[in-house]
Design a protein around this nucleic acid. Structure first.
Lengths: 133, 133
DNA sequence: AGTGGGTACTTACTAATAGTTAGCGCCTTG
DNA sequence: CAAGGCGCTAACTATTAGTAAGTACCCACT
């Protein structure tokens, strides 16, 4: 029973039904990564964030922020003023996640050239293989 | 002109058309994260990986591996034997990416309880707010 | 005084993407 | 001699992401 309890309790992202899988998907989601990385540098208002993160729609930004808020990563501070003002910032938990995805974002930017070089050699080899049939 | 050159050259994941955006999406993709993290521990054959990563379909695993291979993260070694044997492993570049997503995966597993606690208090507050209308 | 714009969203619809099922050729195992 | 494993791919469907418009309120400009 200790065994079967452990099967349920020990989180493992490789298990399809493990809650950790969903959490990981939230933080690594297309817009989640960019939101967390942006909020690591400072807090943002909704439409500031929308301008900061190129290509995000209002719908997806709202949805992403709601998911991250529910998971306890993001704090939403809605000031009851007109025009509406809503500030988004990281919680301590969110900051931990954000540091990791921020690192990933910066790493990616540094390695763009390497990846592009890898792609041309991959495509070249594929073309050569196709030609020699 | 140095200025406009820089605008094109300096990678920034927040710019919609920046190549770094796509690369980041590949490594943070639903299955990409899990594939990279798994391959950090050892190399795997195709169907070994499929069994290791719960819930991945053959189609998505093949697609993910092809994307990661083209980006230079994963090395594919197809031995011309029967039955077919294909080994997947990380390149040095892929190892750098994998270390980061591995950290994220382990962090997520450690924080599951915190996230679940955050969710109940979020849902509670929502329910209380809805009740007091 | 009316038009356009900004605030933070939600809703309805459509396009893109992910997942499901079946198939391939070849071989080993029961 | 059928069943299953190997590493895929192709066709089809379900789910999800993206687009466009609407909401309600206010300010600045003409």
């Amino acid at each position: 029973m200790a065994v079967s309890d452990d099967l349920v309790r020990v989180p493992d992202v490789n298990r399809e039904m493990c809650p950790s899988r969903l959490i990981l998907e939230h933080v690594t989601s297309r817009w989640g990564v960019l939101v967390l990385a942006a909020l690591l540098e400072r807090s943002y208002r909704f439409s500031e964030l929308r301008r900061e993160i190129g290509g995000v729609s209002e719908k997806m930004l709202a949805q992403t922020l709601q998911t991250l808020e529910r998971d306890g990563f993001v704090h939403r501070d809605a000031k009851p003023v007109i025009p509406p003002r809503v500030d988004y910032s990281l919680t301590p938990l969110g900051k931990e996640a954000a540091e990791q995805v921020w690192g990933l974002a910066r790493w990616t930017e540094r390695r763009v050239a390497d990846v592009e070089a890898a792609r041309v050699s991959y495509d070249d080899e594929k073309a050569r293989a196709a030609a020699s049939l």
